[in-house]
Simulated scan of single mutants.
Amino acid sequence: MIVRFGVWAAFQKDTRIAASLLRLHFHDCFVNGCDGSVLLDDTKHFKGEKNALPNRNSVRGFDVIDNIKSDIERACPLSVSCADILTLAAREAVYLSGGPYWPVSLGRRDGLTASQKAANEHLPSPFEPLQNITSKFAANGLDLKDVVALSGAHTIGYAQCFTFKRRLYNFKGSGKPDPTLDSSLLSSMQNTCPNVDGSNSKLAPLDSQTTYRFDNLYYKNLVQNTGLLESDQALVGDPKTADMVNSYSMDPFLFSKDFAASMIKLGNIGVLTGQDGEIRKKCGSVN
């Protein structure tokens, strides 16, 4: 309940936080497992993940996790790990946004280190071909269905202009926009993200119709060639993933069910249990 209230309170102040917490959990689990390593600040012994290229000036929500952790420490000291808090917070964020609810098993322990290098290597990028992204998922025990279902997390939240700008102006070095991009989306995104460096960090919604609602519109957008990120739109270009995209675009209940199942798999990647790791007192540093 403490986690639920903490996420709810943050959500009341900033609706965008739901997508941020979900992404924070994803970025934690994809780098050496769900061990809370993404939350660690740099030390003299290691460079943490916060400043890795996929995370720098991009991942957020650390303060929400820190606030929940201090509330939990007051109620029951050294009993709930930061990794568990982050896994629960991601579930609550999705549920608050109108998405599915799934059971979260607890007992993860927190890692003792973090790796900027591993974050740079293991996190999928919006510029990568689908084959590379699929390989990164497979390395974590996730299959093609998980790739398509978990990509549906982009039904909420925003992307910075630099993550899709080449689709607007210079697709694959052609000097022209991506020919598959819907023309009305192209002109609206060119307004939001003019072709100057100053627009790189501006934000655009991943799903402009229901930006804060967790639904299956993301897949409907892909079918209509109005997916924002290259890596998202690529799901329609491969026959195997395109079939799943079509199914999810027509059946919101199927998407919710499969997304929940994939989130359970995600939350169990490389977890530390028993005597491994520790339960941190503060999420930003080891004890």
Rank of each mutant, 00 (worst) to 15 (best):
I279F: 05
G175K: 09
K265P: 02
N140S: 11
A19I: 01
K13D: 13
L266I: 14
L40Y: 02
F255I: 08
L185F: 02
L229D: 04
L96G: 02
L266F: 13
N170H: 13
L228F: 08
G33Y: 04
G61Q: 01
G284S: 11
F214Q: 01
C283S: 08
R16N: 15
A260T: 11
F5L: 13
V59H: 05
S187R: 12
A149F: 09
I65C: 01
V286P: 02
G6W: 01
R16L: 14
R213D: 04
P103D: 13
F127R: 13
D276I: 00
T134C: 09
K13M: 14
M189L: 15
P126Y: 11
T211A: 14
D14Q: 14
P103F: 15
P205T: 11
Y248P: 10
F46W: 05
A75L: 12
T155L: 03
S256M: 09
I68S: 04
L142I: 07
I269M: 06
T113L: 00
P77M: 11
T241H: 10
L206T: 13
P126C: 13
A159H: 11
C34D: 06
V148G: 04
C161W: 11
A89M: 03
T113W: 02
D143L: 00
A9E: 15
R91T: 07
K13F: 15
Q131I: 04
R56Y: 13
F46I: 04
Y169V: 08
S37T: 00
Y212W: 12
S105A: 12
Y218I: 10
P126D: 08
A9R: 15
Q209Y: 05
T226E: 12
M1F: 07
D146I: 10
P100G: 09
D243R: 12
K257V: 03
D41C: 05
L144M: 13
N268L: 09
E121A: 15
F137R: 03
I279H: 03
N287C: 01
F253D: 15
D258Y: 06
K47W: 00
H154F: 13
P179T: 12
D71W: 14
T273L: 12
T134W: 05
L186T: 11
S187K: 11
L106R: 00
A204G: 15
H122D: 07
H154D: 03
S249P: 12
P129F: 07
R4T: 14
M189N: 07
T43C: 00
K117C: 03
K117D: 12
S135R: 12
L130G: 08
S249L: 10
N67T: 12
R213I: 09
K50H: 07
F127N: 09
L24G: 06
V59E: 06
L266E: 03
P179H: 04
C34I: 01
A83V: 05
G61N: 03
G6M: 09
K172V: 13
D238Y: 11
T210K: 11
N120G: 06
R60V: 07
L40I: 02
G284N: 10
K136R: 13
K257N: 15
V245C: 11
A93Y: 03
A93I: 04
T273D: 00
K202Y: 14
L78D: 14
S285M: 00
H122T: 06
R56F: 14
C193G: 11
D182K: 08
R280P: 06
L86H: 07
